[in-house]
Amino acid sequence: MNERSTHSMFEVTDLSVRYARGEAPVLRDVSLTIDRGESIALVGDSGCGKSTLALAAMRLLPKTAFIRGSIVLRGDNRETPVDILGSDERTIERVRGRRIAMVFQNPIGSLNPVMRIEKQLAEVLRVVRGTSRSTAKRGALESLNRVGIADPVRVGRAYPHELSGGMAQRVALALALAGEPELLIADEPTSALDGIVQAQIVELIRETQRQTNLSLLLITHDMAIAKALTNRVCVIEATRLVDDCPIDQLTAADRHAATARLIQAAEFKRSAAITLMERTI
């Protein structure tokens, strides 16, 4: 444990969240650590509290929420650790987008609907990287190119509603990566997308991780995507973290029932297809 915490760059300790007085908690005593360059997945059914954890990590929870526990971003050893929940707003603003960035499930909704893509990107570049106004536009097109957009000029001129879901998710990813963050939180980045586009985005995230030393916190309900993108899976069931295991030990016999159920669900469609094929052949 001691040996491990020296490498960990992001630590959540005993986090509990309730949205209002008298309401049931949405997270209870959740602890997890992410090491530098590591990818972990937070898997659970909808309503289990996994998105709340993502919001807490960016300190985007409503001010009225009741929060206990701590979230610490360590970064590399030169920098002082940042206490996400305890710091003042200005410190947090320097963390958001620069050191922790986030991609949402609904990419079109997470973009500003009345601003052209290149302008949004240029603005983010100016704010988080301090790029000058004149070079920001070129930088915007470059970052579009980096997320696999073949025609950055045309996409840059477009408004968010003119993009397809997959294209918008690429743009959202470009926005998130603009600040060269250490940690990327991806909240169901592919659930709203079709099969082929899903595969494209999974491939893109994989490629990005290969190129940069980016840590990834993937939030999903689909064990298949978790397996494809990460090397450790944390399972949340009904507000509690019930399992935390490396991807290669997922199928071990002594896994928690919730983990087994989620794996089964992911396998079901595939296995049902196989049984059906066997039956009909």
């Binding site: 929870l61 001010k63 929420a65 009741f66 929060i67 206990r68 929940l85 305890g86 003042d88």
Partner: peptide, 9 residues
């Protein structure tokens, strides 16, 4: 109770 060290929240 909320965390008393987080007065902002």
């Amino acid at each position: 109770t909320a965390n008393p060290t987080n007065p902002i929240l």
